[in-house]
């Protein structure tokens, strides 16, 4: 039943800048099944956006460069695609919405023109039919007011613009929608509405969603499965209940502890000690080791692989490996 739609495996995207190589995405494994909502969480700068932009082929190259691994979407390898082939996929098989609804729409074209353009990029419809489809797609995201097609982005509020972005992204019925912190810039009530809308569209159309956020509340509300990233790598992956009830990676445990709970006083709020490593100088061994309270010797010398620990849960931590085995075991082969 469960069929993988997006399979990212051992994918590496480095930025070659004047000041050195930034290993923004370094060995990421991530799967999104058809119709599934997957959350991608992690601190700022851990490579969430670069991972998702890689799926869209929108990482600026140069300075970005694919250093290995593969991205398969609907049984098609994406890492070798050329310009034309990319354009057939973008907006059609996979769409993306962004954090900043205020600046994500072109200010000098009408809403109607911008949605129609997305339609006619991939569907052979005449202008009239495309406009009707555009109006339908707006209706679908809860905008039914008359004349909206003729309005310009500056006439709409942030929440409305994000709805327009969603309508535009969904209008060609993509198999996957990538949402890069779609609600971060919106106020709380609007946030909830947008999340409801996305959840509803997911159920009604079967479009899978890769939801990027650093808000674990959003994850709990929206997602079926969660992938946690740290310093360009996936450190833990599990279904949403497992992750919240039995986080196995120390980093995930730290993240969960830092969520403010009702009744908890603000000054007691936990935060993970230390800082995110500099992406130009990653520590040898486990990247989280310098901040980890369980760090062992091996953690500082050898990099752990992503170990399968049952129930579809994976964790990149030496704690899960039997100490006797670890010496003669190549961690990378255990990647599930």
């Amino acid at each position: 039943m469960v069929r993988p739609l997006l399979e990212i495996s051992r994918f590496k995207m480095y930025f070659h800048t004047d000041k050195g190589v930034v290993k923004a995405v370094d060995d990421v494994d991530l799967t999104v099944n058809e119709g599934e909502v997957v959350g991608l969480v992690g601190e700022s700068g851990c490579g969430k956006s670069v991972t998702s932009l890689s799926v869209m082929g929108l990482v600026p190259r140069p300075p970005g460069r694919v250093e290995g691994g593969s991205i398969r979407l609907a049984d098609r390898e994406l890492t070798h695609l050329k310009g034309r082939e990319w354009r057939k996929i973008r907006g059609n098989v996979v769409s993306m919405i962004f954090q900043e609804p205020m600046t994500s729409l072109n200010p000098v074209f009408t809403i109607g023109d911008q949605i129609v353009e997305a339609i006619r990029q991939h569907r052979k419809l005449d202008k009239k039919a495309a406009r009707r489809l555009a109006a339908d797609s707006l209706q679908e995201v809860g905008i039914s007011r008359k004349g909206i097609l003729e309005e310009y982005p500056h006439q709409l509020s942030g929440g409305m613009r994000q709805r327009v972005m969603i309508a535009m992204a969904m209008v060609c019925r993509p198999k996957l929608l990538i949402a890069d912190e779609p609600t971060t810039a919106l106020d709380v009530t609007i946030q909830a509405q947008i999340l409801d809308l996305m959840r509803r569209l997911n159920r009604e159309t079967g479009t899978a969603i890769l939801m990027i956020t650093h808000d674990l509340g959003v994850v709990a509300e929206m997602c079926d499965r969660v992938v946690v990233m740290y310093a360009g790598q996936v450190v833990e992956e599990a279904d949403v209940n497992t992750l919240f009830n039995q986080p196995r990676h120390p980093y995930t445990q730290g993240l969960l502890q830092s969520i403010p709970r009702l009744g908890q006083r603000a000054e007691r709020l936990y935060s993970i000690p230390g800082n995110v490593p500099n992406p130009k100088q990653m520590p040898t061994g486990c990247r989280f080791a310098p901040r980890c309270e369980y760090a062992m010797n091996i953690c500082r010398t050898e990099e752990p692989g992503l170990f399968a620990i049952g129930d579809g849960q994976n964790s990149r931590c030496w704690l899960h490996v039997d100490k006797k085995e670890e010496a003669d075991r190549d961690p990378t082969t255990t990647t599930s």
Binding site: M56, R87, K88, I89, F98, S104, N106, A118, M165, M168
Partner: peptide, 26 residues
């Protein structure tokens, strides 16, 4: 560099149109 150009690319718009339509008008 602006976000709406990234949006246009994400829709699958050709580079020529991105430059001469989306970007130039702005």
């Amino acid at each position: 560099r602006s976000d709406y150009i990234r949006t246009a690319r994400a829709k699958g718009v050709r580079e020529g149109l991105i430059i001469y339509k989306h970007a130039l008008k702005n």
